[in-house]
Write a protein that binds this DNA or RNA. Sequence first.
DNA 1: ATGGTTGTACAACAA
Length: 264
Amino acid sequence: MKIATWNVNSIKARKPRILDWFDEAKPDVCVLQEIKCVDEAFPTGDFEERGYNVFVYGQKTYNGVALLSKHPVEDVIKGLPNFEDDQARYIEGTIIPDDTDPIRVGGLYMPNGNPAPGPKWDYKLAFIEALIRHMEDRFSREEAFCVAGDYNIIPSADGVYDPKGWADDALFRPEVRAAFRRMKAIGFTSAVHALMQEPYYTFWDYQGGAWKKNHGLQIDHLLLSPEAADRLEEAGVDADVRDPETGNGDVKPSDHVPVWINIA
DNA sequence: ATGGTTGTACAACAA
């Protein structure tokens, strides 16, 4: 079963490229971030035509997440439990395939946190604490669980083209790197790190020719509970989707690319 | 030091 995450940076501006990727990659489950639309404006029909059950936690202009699944989905929640938030950044549901065991999948859009220090940084730190509490709660249930999404955390120097230049950025500060280690210390496995030895990026800024210079960041991750990690078979990053020259006419790419795993 | 891209929405903010 293929589970993917992709920060699409506006579903409306990206729709042709997104549908092209779905037709090629055929994920069983995909979480999307930064859809930047209200629930009613999401192109639900385009995904239903392709066999997906569609769950949207939308927001006007900013944020917004979605959970798409070819398999039945139960117990969908919108927003992190026990965390007051007026921004649509988390969705979660239990995937019930007919041929494999169920898995609960969370779709995450972590706050960016810049500038740090400041109120946006404080919001990111509070969101992290709520996420870690939730991951601890889910871990204790001893069920297959995957948190997939845009963590806005660069876990190590391998994940940034210029570590020194990014030292004070909210995506790379010691506090968020420590948070990523805390998630692993609970017992979660970072799926792509587990299977790929080489450094890799999942995001390239639109500015300064970052794609051509390979000035990327590694900020999109899939973290697995032990029950899910035991089933991990394959992981990948569809970096070619970022190339402005490939794909759909003059429709520009997202600054993030799809990241995916295959589990038994 | 400044500006450098893109999306939303139409000025300015977020990333």
